[in-house]
Amino acid sequence: MTSKGIFRFFIGFYLLLFFGYLFGPLLIMGATAFNNSSYPQLWPWEGGTLDWFVKLANDQAMLRGIGNSLLVGLGVICLAVPIGLAGAIVMTQIYWRARGLYYLVVVSPLLTPGVIIGISTVLFWRQLLGADHPLYSGYFMTILGQATFISAYCMLIFLSRLQRFDRAQEEAALDLGASNLQFFWQVLLPFLRPAVFSAAVLAFLSSFENYNTTTFTILARTTLTTELAGRVRQGSNPSLSALALLIITITLIGAILYEIYKRREDRREKDRAAVAAAAEAEGEPAIIAA
């Protein structure tokens, strides 16, 4: 074998190992959802069953947790996407000497342990509102706590899209008589639409799977993650595996759909470039008919 062949073999082997590490635990967990044993295990196999899925569907506490997670997720979208957008726009306009400091402040929640964000949110708002204020509730605290750092994710998404926005378009719109608001709605937002979509999805997913912050901010209620954490710590049963399997399946389908959408966009872009090239080759007719 040539040295290149050996090299290739090792790379292939390493990739196999790595993706095994990545997916193996999840696959095994998924498989345990079908085992008819009271503890999530592959071995011994006590016969296939779908009971664990049925159990999951009847688990009221879990369903309530899912409901709360959805609610909080929507709340986080409503808060974090507009904040992230504003944060990104301000970043493009801010006085350049203040930019470094501003950036540091707004990305700091990404570098702060989630536990600390949760604690500080609860402490601060309890003090600000008083412990029996109706707004001092698990929902509201969790939305605020999660939005603190999820807004920063959203901002980064908007920033990377904004970097490709040609400032001259803003001036062109104003020059043609648009007001600032018209520019915002008719030119900037349509341009940012894919980013708004990505930011919303990302915000929802990060909210949905968050544990460290939520466990402090959810107070008397539960979300899916805090409910799960409680179960797992008490001992486990295969309906958790069933739930995990469902989540993995949904994510996979979402990812594949997204990939298909991305490819179609790419193809459309390529078609356009081809049309433009054809127009280029055709040459220029006289503008003014004689």
């Binding site: 999840l26 095994i28 799960l228 739930l243 995990a244 993995i248």
Partner: peptide, 9 residues
């Protein structure tokens, strides 16, 4: 996949 579930796996 949820952080908790990953740990669970």
């Amino acid at each position: 996949v949820n952080e908790i579930l990953r740990a669970f796996a």
